[in-house]
């Protein structure tokens, strides 16, 4: 890749937001599996596998699956966050493979959050 200039940084930022934004025509759902050391130790990998499997089965192309590092609440790992376009992100905790399948079917596919597995909606405070 070529060396970046400062203008490039801004362009990457804009392009990224344009490309990744959850919107019509682009991705409509973003699934983030939180995979820091403790998340992995608590079983985040099998959860990721289930999600990828379900995604393949669904055949949908408008779902982005990604990872992040530690999400902060180690005692409730494994965790996953699901964000539908136009809605606040929902964080699920203490996942198992069955729970992940249910969340995929009901929240991702049908748009109905699974209340009993969810901890919280919204973003953390940053200022």
């Amino acid at each position: 890749m070529a060396k970046l200039t400062i203008a490039d940084l801004k362009k990457i930022k804009e392009e990224y937001h344009a490309g990744q934004a959850l919107r019509e025509g682009g991705f409509k759902v973003k699934i983030t599996v939180h995979m820091g050391t403790c998340g992995i130790a608590a079983g985040a990998r099998p959860i990721m596998n289930v999600i990828l499997e379900e995604l393949a089965k669904s055949g949908r192309k408008d779902i982005a699956v990604t990872t992040s590092g530690c999400a902060g609440l180690c005692s409730k790992e494994p965790m996953m966050t699901i964000e539908l376009s136009g809605e606040a992100p929902v964080r699920y905790i203490a996942l198992t493979e069955e729970k992940a399948r249910k969340i995929f079917a009901e929240h991702v596919m049908a748009g109905k959050p699974v209340k009993e597995y969810a901890l919280v909606v919204g973003h953390e405070t940053t200022y």
Partner: peptide
């Protein structure tokens, strides 16, 4: 400290972590 304090007490056998 293996940094998995959320799972304490932790035992690791080879690559497998038990919490």
């Amino acid at each position: 400290c293996l940094g998995a304090c959320g799972l304490a007490p932790v035992v690791v056998v080879d690559q497998d972590t038990y919490g």
